[in-house]
Simulated assay, not measured.
Amino acid sequence: MTHFKSQVFLILNELPSGECIGYGELAKQAGFPGYARQVGHLMKNLPKDSKLPWHRVVNSQRKISFAENTDAYWQQRHKLESEGWIIVGNKLTLNEFDQKEER
C-alpha cells in the first residue's frame, strides 16, 4: 500500500461518527495538499465490503458529489442522515448536535 493511501485511510478511519471532511482537507491532513482528486479516486475504488467510513467524505461545499439519481448518492445520504446530518438537496447542513452547540 502506498504511503498516500495508507495515510488517507488512517485519517478517515479515525474520523468520528457525525463528522465529515472534504476531499481536499483529507488530502492535506494526510500530508498531500492538492491531492483532492486522488482522494476521490481512492474513495470511488474502495471494495464494496470496506469498513472505512467513506460516506463522511464530501466536497468542499459540504455536498455529496454523486449524482442524485445514483445508488451511491442514496447510500451516502442514508448513512450521513443516520449519523445526524440534515441534507437539503445534496448539501449537508449542521447536524442536530452542532445546532445545539451554536445556541
Rank of each mutant, 00 (worst) to 15 (best):
N13V: 05
E14V: 12
E14N: 15
E14T: 14
E14D: 15
E14Y: 14
L15G: 02
P16I: 15
P16Q: 15
S17G: 09
S17W: 08
E19F: 11
E19G: 00
E19S: 11
C20H: 08
I21Q: 04
I21L: 07
G22Y: 08
Y23P: 00
Y23D: 03
Y23K: 03
Y23T: 02
G24H: 04
E25Q: 15
L26P: 00
L26M: 05
L26H: 02
A27N: 08
A27L: 09
A27Y: 07
A27C: 11
K28M: 07
Q29F: 14
Q29K: 14
A30F: 03
A30D: 06
G31Q: 00
G31M: 06
G31L: 05
P33Q: 00
G34R: 00
G34T: 00
Y35H: 13
Y35D: 13
A36H: 13
A36V: 11
R37D: 12
R37M: 13
R37Y: 11
V39L: 01
G40Y: 03
G40R: 06
G40I: 04
G40M: 06
H41S: 07
H41F: 07
L42V: 13
L42M: 14
L42C: 14
L42E: 11
L42P: 04
M43Y: 02
N45A: 06
N45D: 06
N45R: 08
L46Y: 06
K48I: 04
K48L: 07
D49F: 11
D49M: 09
S50N: 05
K51M: 14
K51I: 11
K51C: 12
P53V: 10
W54A: 01
W54C: 02
R56I: 01
V57S: 00
N59G: 11
N59Q: 10
Q61N: 08
I64W: 01
F66S: 05
A67P: 13
A67S: 15
A72I: 00
Y73K: 06
Y73G: 01
Y73W: 09
W74M: 11
W74F: 13
Q75K: 10
Q75P: 02
Q75M: 08
Q76T: 07
Q76K: 04
Q76G: 00
R77L: 12
R77W: 10
K79R: 10
K79V: 01
L80F: 02
L80M: 05
L80W: 01
S82T: 15
S82Q: 15
E83M: 06
E83K: 05
G84L: 13
W85F: 15
